[in-house]
Structures are given as structure tokens and as C-alpha cells.
Amino acid sequence: MTEVVLFHHAQGLTPGVTAFADELRGDRFTVHTPDLYDGRTFDTLEAGLAYAEQIGVEDILDRGTRAVADSPAELVCIGFSLGVLPAQKLAQTRPGARGAVFVHSCVPSSMFGTWPSQVPVRIHAMEEDRLFTTEGDADAARALVDEAPDAELYLYPGDQHLFADSSLPSYDAEAAALLLDRTRTFLRSR
């Protein structure tokens, strides 16, 4: 069965992130949810981003790498927003990566080299999410779809950033259910 690592967003390892992982575990996938914040969670995205800035991107990437050090190489890497950073780094640089799912965010593949042709990637965001559309994520996602041989970008109606986290006010049940269904289908193919 497919082994997965799911990295949380800037508000931390919230109950909604854990619930998403539990849905995948219910389908018999092994899902690891490393806590990049050592137990801290934040009530707002702004507070979580401030903490992430305090830690620094390099430390977040290092924490993500260390979190999977003892895991099998054949992982599917999933990231929610900020968690896309370690997920994308691992998908691009870790030998044996089986796939990647980026939710709410995407960074240019050039940040970690070039996209490995054997690693499929799926990117999910809301079409009017201002963080996705105005901060370069949408452009990076489209470029990755053009670059990677097996890549798809899914845009959902709406404007919420963290729409897949059931513990946050931004949660969109319909979009999250479709994301979950598409992710299950993708994981079954891995």
C-alpha cells in the first residue's frame, strides 16, 4: 500500500489536517503527519506565517527532511500551503519519490532543481484564492504542469486559501470532498 507524508500548513498540525490524513488512513494508506512546529498551532494564518518566518524557510525544509529520514524512499509527498515547501523539495530531490500532491500552493520547480520526469504531481487550489493567484503560486503551478510529464492543476470554485482544513472557517466541504476523492484516486495509482 502507498506510503504518504502530509505536511501541514502555516497554522500548524491542526485537527483539520489530521482529519484529512485520517480519511486517507481509512482507505488503508499509511500516512505520516510530521509536526514541523513542535506542537504549536495558530488561530490565524497571519500568526502562523509570522512564526514560520521566525523559524525560517531553511529550517522548515530541514525539519521536513528530518521527519522522513527513517521512512521508505517510495513516498508520496503531500503539502498543504506552507507544507508544500518540504513536500516539493522531497518530491524533487529524494530518490524513489512516487508522487506529489500540492494543496493551496506551489513554488517554482527551479527552487529545488528540475522536476523529475518519473514523479507525477497534482496541484489543487481555489481559482480566486488571492494568495495562490497573486503571490506567484498560480504561475508556478502552470509552469510545473508544462514542465512535468505527468502533472495536473485542479482549480475549485471559490476564494478560500485553506479550504481543505475542516477545523478552520475557510473550510469548503464540497471542494474538500472533491480534493479528497481526487487524492485517493491518485494514491491508488501510485
Results as ranks from 00 to 15, higher is better:
M1T: 03
V4E: 00
V5W: 05
L6G: 08
L6E: 03
F7P: 03
G12Q: 11
L13E: 08
P15M: 09
P15V: 03
P15K: 07
V17S: 10
D22M: 05
E23D: 11
L24D: 03
V31R: 07
T33I: 13
T33H: 11
D35Y: 12
D35S: 09
L36D: 03
L36Y: 03
L36I: 14
Y37H: 14
T41L: 08
F42P: 04
L45P: 00
E46A: 15
E46G: 12
E46H: 12
E46S: 14
A50S: 15
E53F: 05
I55G: 03
I55W: 11
V57M: 11
V57L: 14
E58A: 15
D59T: 15
I60N: 00
I60T: 12
L61Y: 03
D62V: 05
R63Q: 02
G64Q: 02
G64I: 02
G64C: 05
R66K: 13
V68F: 00
A69I: 06
D70H: 14
S71T: 04
P72K: 04
P72Y: 03
E74N: 13
V76Y: 04
I78L: 15
G79Y: 11
S81W: 08
L82T: 06
G83Y: 10
V84T: 14
L85K: 04
L85A: 15
P86Y: 04
K89N: 07
K89Y: 12
Q92W: 02
Q92A: 14
Q92R: 06
T93D: 06
R94P: 01
G96T: 05
A97D: 00
G99E: 04
A100Y: 08
A100V: 09
V101E: 00
F102H: 09
S105Q: 13
V107M: 09
P108E: 06
S109R: 07
S109A: 15
M111N: 06
G113N: 08
W115K: 02
S117C: 03
Q118P: 00
P120R: 03
V121E: 01
V121K: 02
R122D: 08
H124F: 13
A125C: 13
A125Y: 15
A125T: 13
E128W: 14
D129G: 10
L131Q: 10
L131W: 09
T133K: 00
T133F: 09
G136D: 11
D137W: 11
D139C: 01
R142E: 10
A143C: 01
L144A: 13
V145T: 10
D146S: 14
E147L: 02
E147G: 05
A148H: 12
A148D: 04
A148N: 07
P149K: 02
D150E: 10
E152W: 03
L153S: 11
L153T: 11
Y154P: 00
Y156C: 12
Y156F: 14
G158V: 06
G158H: 06
D159T: 10
D159N: 14
D159C: 09
Q160W: 01
L162I: 15
L162M: 11
F163T: 09
D165C: 06
S166Q: 13
P169C: 07
D172T: 14
A173V: 07
A177T: 11
A177I: 02
L179H: 10
L180I: 05
L180R: 12
L180Q: 12
R184E: 01
R184C: 08
R184I: 15
R184Y: 00
T185D: 08
F186P: 06
F186N: 05
L187N: 00
L187P: 00
R188Y: 03
R190C: 15
